[in-house]
Simulated scan of single mutants.
Amino acid sequence: MQTTQHCAETRRAATEPHQFPSLDLVNRPTVPTEQAAYYLNRRPQTMRGWASAETFPDGLRPVRINGRLAWPVSGIRSALGVQ
């Protein structure tokens, strides 16, 4: 039986959250689920559940593009109360 050796960098990459730019610096109309979850302090799976059950906050309706969810930046800002 072989054991797999993981380097410290691999372990760190699996446990550290992604770092996304500040919401003020985002100039795209939509962001992917992981980035939206980061800004809203939620898990990506929560965002997917909102989209599936259509229980997202007002103004935050996601757009489906080729089977993937894209979350409007304006909706994220309104959900956070930031303009």
Rank of each mutant, 00 (worst) to 15 (best):
L23G: 08
S78Y: 12
G67H: 10
R42K: 14
T55W: 02
A36L: 12
S22I: 08
S52D: 06
V26F: 04
Y38A: 09
I65V: 15
Y39S: 02
A53V: 09
L23A: 05
P62H: 10
R48A: 03
T33K: 05
A51F: 07
V31P: 00
L69Y: 13
Q35W: 11
G59P: 05
G67F: 10
A79K: 11
I76P: 01
R28P: 00
V73I: 05
G75Q: 04
L40M: 12
W71D: 01
T33S: 09
T30N: 09
S74V: 05
G49D: 05
G59L: 11
N66W: 00
G59I: 02
G59K: 08
V73C: 04
L25Q: 11
A53H: 04
G67R: 10
R77W: 02
L60E: 12
A37S: 02
R77Y: 00
N41I: 14
L69V: 15
R43F: 04
L60T: 06
A36D: 04
S78K: 14
G67T: 11
G59N: 10
P57N: 14
Y39D: 12
V73R: 01
P44M: 06
S78A: 14
V63E: 13
T30Q: 01
V63G: 00
Q45S: 15
G67Y: 02
Q45H: 07
G81Q: 11
R42W: 05
P32Y: 04
T33Y: 04
P44L: 05
G67I: 10
E54M: 12
D24W: 02
T30L: 13
S74K: 09
L25P: 00
R68T: 15
R61D: 07
S52N: 15
R48G: 04
V73S: 04
P62W: 06
N66M: 02
V73P: 06
A79F: 01
Q45C: 02
R64D: 06
L40H: 00
M47E: 01
G81S: 07
P21T: 12
D24H: 04
T30V: 12
V73H: 00
R42G: 00
F56R: 03
Y39C: 13
P32Q: 02
V63F: 14
Q35Y: 06
A53P: 00
N27L: 14
N27T: 13
L69K: 13
V73Q: 02
V63C: 04
Y39N: 08
T55L: 05
Q45I: 08
P21V: 15
P57I: 05
N27Y: 02
D58P: 12
R68F: 09
M47N: 08
A36P: 05
P44I: 04
G49N: 09
R64G: 01
N27H: 11
M47W: 05
N66A: 14
